[in-house]
C-alpha cells in the first residue's frame, strides 16, 4: 500500500502537520523513533506558546499535541528512517528495523539534537556529570556546584532552573553579553545563585569517574583557569537530524534543510518543517506553523 503522506518525527512540527493532514483526509502516519515530543520533552517550562497564559510544562504540551493529532486519524508508529529512495513519483522509506514503507509524499520533521562542545572529557563523563538536559539531571545535583555553558535562551533558562537544586550555578559564555531574550536575562541577573563568567570557553572537562573540574580559557586575556564543579550542563545550540537525507535534498553547511515558503525541499514531494529546516527562529510556535503549511502544501500538490 502507498500512503499519501509520511511524517518523519513526532515533535511539534510533525504533530501539527498530522492535525492538518488528518483534517484534509490524507492517508498517512507519523514515524517516531521514540515517543512523540522531541526536544519539547526536555523543556522544563514553555511560557511563550500562545494560549497558555501561565505557561505549561513541555510534557503536558506534548501530550496535548499528541492527543490532538490522534483525533483526526493520523497515528504515531514507532520507526526510525535510515534512508529515502525516490521511486518514480513515489518514495520508499527504509527503516532501521528492515521494513520499507511507500508514500507519495514525505514531510521531514525530525528536528534537532543538542550540539556537543567537542572537548576532552565530554564524551567520557557524559552521564557522570556532563549533561544536556537540566530537567532530567538537575535533581542529581542538589546542593552542589554546576556550570552551564552557553548564552542563548536554553542556557539561561536552564541555568535558572538549576538554581532550584544546585547551591551555585556558573554560567560560562564566550561573549561579553547574553544572546537570550531579555526577560530571561533579567531573571538570571537578579538570581544570586548564578555567577557569570564572560568571554570564556570550556577547554576540558576533568574527572576520574565523575566530573570534578573544568578548564576555562578567557578569550580576551588568554588566561587559563580551573573551576571545581560537580556538573557541566551544555547548551550551545543544536544540530539538525538530517543525516538520512544527506545528498538527497539541499541543505546548508550545517545540515539544515532548505525549503521554499510552502516548505517544499529541492526534491518534489519531500517537505521539511520545524527545527530541521533552515530558518531564523527555532521555536514551538514556528514549528507548528511550518508543519501546518507543509501539510497544506502536500494537499495542494497531490490534488
Amino acid at each position: 500500500m502507498t500512503f499519501d503522506v509520511i511524517i518523519i518525527g513526532g515533535g511539534p512540527a510533525g504533530l501539527a502537520a498530522a492535525i492538518y493532514a488528518g483534517r484534509a483526509k490524507l492517508g498517512g502516519i507519523i514515524l517516531e523513533k521514540m515517543s512523540p515530543g522531541g526536544q519539547v520533552l526536555i523543556t522544563d517550562f514553555v511560557e511563550n506558546y500562545p494560549g497558555f497564559v501561565e505557561g505549561i510544562s513541555g510534557f503536558e504540551l506534548v501530550e496535548k499535541f499528541t492527543e490532538h493529532a490522534k483525533r483526526f486519524g493520523i497515528t504515531v508508529e514507532n520507526g526510525e528512517v535510515s534512508s529515502i529512495e525516490p521511486v518514480g513519483a513515489e518514495f520508499n522509506l527504509n527503516l532501521t528495523d528492515g521494513r520499507t514503507i511507500t508514500s507519495k509524499t514525505v514531510i521531514i520533521t525530525t528536528g534537532a539534537t543538542h550540539r556537543k562542545l567537542g572537548v576532552k572529557g565530554e564524551q567520557e563523563l557524559t552521564g557522570r556529570g556532563v549533561s544536556y538536559c537540566a530537567t532530567c539531571d538537575g535533581p542529581f545535583f542538589k546542593d552542589q556546584v554546576v556550570a552551564v555553558v552557553g548564552g542563548g535562551d536554553s542556557a539561561v533558562q536552564e541555568a535558572i532552573f538549576l538554581t532550584k537544586f544546585a547551591k551555585k550555578v556558573y554560567l560560562i559564555h564566550r561573549r561579553d553579553q547574553l544572546r537570550a531574550i531579555k526577560i530571561l536575562q533579567e531573571r538570571a541577573f537578579s538570581n544570586d545563585k548564578i555567577e557569570f563568567i564572560w568571554n570564556s570557553t570550556v577547554e576540558e572537562i576533568k574527572g576520574k569517574d565523575q566530573v570534578e573540574a573544568i578548564k576555562i580559557v578567557n578569550k580576551l586575556t588568554g588566561e587559563t583557569s580551573c573551576l571545581n564543579v560537580d556538573g557541566v550542563f551544555i547548551f550551545i545550540g543544536i544540530e539538525p537530524t538530517t543525516h538520512f537525507v544527506k545528498g538527497l535534498v539541499d541543505m546548508d553547511q550545517r545540515g539544515f534543510i532548505k525549503t521554499d515558503e510552502w516548505m517544499r525541499t529541492s526534491v518534489k514531494g519531500i517537505y521539511a518543517a520545524g527545527d530541521c529546516r533552515k530558518k531564523p527562529l527555532l521555536q514551538i510556535v514556528t514549528a507548528v506553523a511550518e508543519g501546518a503549511t507543509a501539510a497544506f502544501a502536500v494537499e495542494h500538490d497531490l490534488a
Binding site: 515517543s35 515530543g37 514507532n78 530537567t135 535533581p139
Partner: peptide
Amino acid sequence: WAAWCGPCRAIAPVIDQ
C-alpha cells in the same frame, strides 16, 4: 528513570517493546 524526566518517557515505548 524518574517521573520528571522527559526523555525517560520518550524511550518508555521502546523499553516496552
